[in-house]
Amino acid sequence: MNAADSHAGTAYGPAGSTPPFPRMELRFGHPGRRYEPGEWVTAEYTIDGLNGERPRALERSALWYTEGKGEEDLGVHFFERFLTPETIDRVVPEGTFALQLPPSPLSYEGVIVKIRWCIRLRIFFESGRDHVSEHVFTVGRVPPSILP
């Protein structure tokens, strides 16, 4: 099973005996979350609410994906996966990382095609469940498109 929260929002999960999902917060180096292509993105994150549950793996990624009328496309620019207890202890419950953005694609708010950039933190637990947290940011300064 998996669950997701976006924009460092509140964690949620099904009610019942399942342990609550952790709360993952991420702070960008730029308060406005707006970056230029080729610029370095620095991010600090904290993971709360693990309640003693042991993470099996953590994934940190920076990617773009499309939204809109078409099928979703996705391109991963940066991907790290931490698997062993030693490496996981270094990145959970808090960590920082930095990555340099590529020159393209830029964030775009079109009519039927939209391009978004985000950082995703995905944590996998020994129980088999996983939880993903998505933090959107902007690359470039392309104004939204409107029909002529």
């Binding site: 080729g38 698997l83 340099q100």
Partner: peptide
């Protein structure tokens, strides 16, 4: 049409890693 920053840009760094 390419972005301004991509004009004359060299290869950009990318990272795909699995730690341990």
């Amino acid at each position: 049409v390419i972005p301004v920053k991509a004009a004359g840009a060299g290869a950009f760094p990318e990272s795909v890693e699995a730690m341990g």
